[in-house]
Design a protein around this nucleic acid. Structure first.
Lengths: 242, 242
DNA sequence: TCGTTTTTAATGTATAGACAAAATAGCGAA
DNA sequence: TTCGCTATTTTGTCTATACATTAAAAACGA
């Protein structure tokens, strides 16, 4: 009972909501009623209910009151860990082989189309292509474009062995990102590089990132089926506080 | 300037942190300093900084102060929307065909193994299998187990036309979930049901959900490559509040 | 010098009150 | 009836203050 009071109030209702004792749409007591019930100040009750509101468990409307929120959007936190670190964690040897490194402009080549990236044609880009190896066996293909206006220092980086993703993760924080996950069959060239049959199923992850409104990088990663999986988790572990 | 003050303070620092003006590990001013700077009460500053703390942007330690948090895990919010709603949104006709409906126990059949689900063998389960159609063409296969102890009402539900996922989303809020996303080739039976070649690449989404510590459901969805994609987004748009 | 105790600076929690804002409810007039 | 105004309820924000808690830093003693 030595936990903070606002925390106790919050948890009281969280428990009841999650257990279904309070149905979605149901109204919960007013702050006045609760401050009488818990014998505390309104600010304390307010803090508890506000926390529930920002957590999305309840909706609060002036004059109307506080209501249990409808089941929220089905969204989960997905981890996209650093490939090198993940391979190393499994006790395998990691290597990245750079296959292509080219400075270019967005207007040049076929960069604009596959990216669907809103960069001006005059923006200087660094195009990188390479293969990720685990214990000597290729397991992923990576094709990346980096905005040199935003990240000029990447020209001095060395990618023989470590991947551009690792470098970017450590040097350029992003504030916004879009990802697209699909399954696809390996093309002829891709199959050869990954040492699989053409048409073999692959997991394709495409990701665009921005810092503010400035595009940073676009990457398309192709994983051999079975060699990689994405995991996502949603739950209390993802939003513990205090 | 008519936005609440605590919100303005919060955003001031959020902006500077995300822009990199405040480096990870860097200490930000004390509440005393900030209440002088913004000419307001300490509670107001406290509210702003506490919000940043629960959002994971800063760490707060007593006596030591408030510090910019180290770059957090590379995790993004992934939307796993309701299939029916999503198909309908694209202007296509949605249909779900139930192919199998069986009450069973966890110990029976091959339920335990594929689920890797920690349910006691005596737990009554409802096994469901069906196909999702868009404009008459099959695009996903679904195999699901539902814990009847947790959700007995599902026995009265009717799944001719609408999917179990939709029903569950509306009737049983979950509090915890794990997901696994892989690419795989279609098996013989699966290929026949989905009207594709055996071995054709498919996106496989497996998901387990709990309410509290009680298992609710396990589902494995197999999507024809190209017919479906998962998208994820991370950015300011994903966590707007107030 | 090293380990222990005390101080102190910072956040954490809570109070009581005030005013603002918004949305519902009710009432009155066209 | 319907439109529009007003009153009221409920949450939103903010203040000023108090005391608790914690951990770093300083003081102290062997």
């Amino acid at each position: 009972m030595n936990r903070p009071l606002h925390e106790r109030i919050r948890q009281d209702f969280e428990t009841r909501i999650l257990a279904g004792a309070l149905a979605p749409g149901e109204r919960l007591p007013t702050e006045q009623a609760l401050m009488a019930h818990y014998d505390c100040a309104r600010m304390t009750v307010n803090k508890a209910l506000s926390a529930l509101a920002t957590a999305g468990l309840v909706d609060r409307r002036k004059k109307a009151g506080t209501f249990v929120a409808r089941p929220r959007v089905h969204s989960m936190a997905m981890d996209i860990p650093d490939l090198g670190a993940q391979v190393a964690e499994r006790g395998q040897a990691y290597r990245f082989d750079l296959a292509l490194r080219r400075e270019m402009h967005a207007a040049t080549g076929r960069a604009q189309a596959p990216m669907e990236w809103k960069v001006d044609g005059s923006v200087p880009l660094l195009e990188l292509e390479g293969i990720h190896f685990a214990d000597g066996a290729p397991f992923a293909l990576e094709h990346r474009f980096v905005n040199l206006t935003a990240v000029p220092e990447i020209l001095d980086a060395d990618f023989t062995g470590s991947s551009p993703g690792t470098w970017l993760l450590e040097h350029v924080p992003w504030t916004e990102a879009d990802a697209r996950i699909t399954a696809t069959g390996a093309g002829a060239t891709e199959a050869r590089l990954l040492a699989v049959e053409p048409g073999a199923p692959c997991l394709c992850v495409e990701r665009k990132t921005w810092r503010g409104s400035e595009p940073i990088t676009y990457v398309r990663q192709l994983f051999v089926a079975g060699a990689y999986e994405l995991t996502a988790h949603f739950g209390p572990g993802a939003r513990r506080d205090t």
